[in-house]
Every structure is written in C-alpha cells, then in structure tokens.
Amino acid sequence: MAAGISSLTGAAASSGKTSTSASGDASTLASNFTQFLTLLTTQLKNQNPLDPMDTNQFTQQLVQFAQVEQQLKGNDRLDSILASSKAASAASATSYIGKTVTTDGTTADLKDGSATWNLTPARAAAKAVVTISDAKGNVVGTQTTSLAAGSQTFAWNGKNASGLAAAEGTYSIKVSATDATGTSVAVATATSGAVDEVDLSGTSPVLIIGTARVPLSSVTSIGLSTTSG
C-alpha cells in the first residue's frame, strides 16, 4: 500500500510540471488526493492495533500534496499577472498609431524618392562616409559628407551610384567617420517614421512603419500625430 501512495504522490508532482493546462493539473491533483485519502483510510482500518503504522510517511505525503497545490495556485496567479501586463502593453502600443516615432537602428524606407536617417556623432566629424545598402545587402550608393556635433538629419534622394532612381523599399546605412585629426568618430543612427499599425501577435508589440518592423523597446522619442483634424 505504501508504494501505491508514493506512486500517486509522484504522479501528482509530475503532472504539475508537465501538463500544459492549469485546470487539468488541478483536476489531476484532486483525483490523486482522493485516491490517496482512500488508501490512507483503508490502511488505517486494516492496520494491526499491536503494531500501528508509522505516521511520518503519511505526513510527508500530505505535505507533498500541499506543496504541489500551492505551486499550481502560484502558476495561476503568474499567468493572470502576465495576461494583465500584456493587455496593458498592447493598449499602450496601439496609441502609437498615426504618430511619428524615432527609433534606434540603421534601416529606413525609401518612398517618393527620399529616405532619411538621424545621425548623432560623438563629436564633430570632418569626414563621414555613408554607405547605403538595399535589403539584400548590396551597396547601392556611397556619399561623403561632414557631420556637426549633435543630432542631425541625413537625407538620401534615392539615386544609386549610376544616378538612377532606386526602387522603393527598405535600405540601411553604415557610417564611417573621422575627425580633423583622422581619429575615428562613433556615430549613432536612428530613423523616424509614422506608425501605420501595430503587430500584437508576438510576445511583445512591434510597430509597423512602412515596411519596417520596429520593436516597441527601440522607440527613443514620439512626435505628434501625422493626421490633422
């Protein structure tokens, strides 16, 4: 009988770890606990009065059931907290629709013959070589300019190295800058655009800006709505 009780407790603990349904875990635990009590009652009824069973084992079994039950309840509370947090995050993300946001990153959409990036050098750069690549990583153009200290806009007119208009789509830039002494200067890149929609299918919201997908965590600033009343 004792072995039967141990196997029931083991099944209950295992179900708490492997089942994907909290309600299913609770149901299994309740069923196993009922069987445990039935076995316990039967053993107590049939024990030898002159040689009673050691109650320590029963106490341990009860403690194990209680621990599994507490774990299941804790999991239910965590699931509830996560659901509430996701709902709040989704509600916050949808408020971005129609607004212009600035995000960390190197990619921007070429649309109507223009693509822009925000560049912020660590200090003034006498020479900055900006390399523009398409979505496949092919270099379509290179421009050399100078950068003042502080944030500034770099605009590309969509013309490739041959002077022809590049196709609309997503492009990325890489900036290699040096100061007047030839020392390398780090340049932070960011892009701006109006949020068209929000993808809530994943674990965290993703903003859709043109064809670009931007994690909500990458947003560094928010502007006014692009629509007017």
Rank of each mutant, 00 (worst) to 15 (best):
S89T: 04
S89K: 06
S89N: 08
A90Y: 03
A90L: 02
A91D: 09
A91S: 12
A91L: 08
A91H: 02
A91T: 09
S92N: 10
S92F: 12
A93C: 02
A93Q: 04
A93S: 04
A93I: 06
A93M: 06
A93H: 06
T94N: 08
T94K: 12
T94E: 05
T94L: 12
S95R: 10
Y96N: 02
Y96T: 00
I97Q: 07
I97K: 09
G98V: 08
G98M: 01
G98N: 06
G98F: 01
K99I: 10
K99Y: 09
K99C: 07
K99V: 05
T100N: 11
T100L: 06
V101G: 08
V101E: 01
V101F: 09
T102F: 00
T102C: 08
T102R: 15
T103S: 14
T103G: 08
T103C: 08
T103A: 14
D104Y: 10
D104W: 07
D104T: 15
G105K: 11
G105Q: 11
G105R: 09
T106Q: 13
T106W: 05
T106I: 14
T106H: 13
T107A: 15
T107G: 02
T107Y: 11
T107E: 15
T107S: 15
A108C: 02
D109C: 05
D109N: 15
D109M: 13
D109W: 05
D109H: 07
L110K: 02
K111Q: 13
K111V: 13
D112E: 14
D112L: 12
G113Y: 07
G113D: 13
G113W: 10
G113C: 10
S114C: 01
S114M: 12
S114N: 13
S114Q: 14
A115I: 10
A115S: 12
A115E: 03
A115P: 07
T116D: 14
T116C: 04
T116Y: 13
W117V: 11
W117T: 12
W117C: 07
W117Q: 08
N118G: 10
L119K: 02
L119P: 06
L119D: 09
L119M: 09
T120V: 13
T120R: 02
T120K: 13
T120D: 08
P121H: 01
P121M: 10
R123L: 05
A124K: 11
A125C: 05
A126D: 12
A126R: 02
A126P: 02
K127G: 00
K127I: 11
K127H: 05
K127R: 14
K127L: 09
A128L: 04
A128R: 00
V129P: 03
V129G: 04
V130I: 15
T131D: 07
T131A: 11
T131Q: 09
T131H: 04
I132R: 03
I132H: 03
I132K: 04
S133Q: 06
S133K: 14
S133Y: 03
S133D: 01
S133W: 00
D134Q: 06
D134L: 04
D134F: 09
D134Y: 02
A135E: 12
A135T: 12
K136I: 01
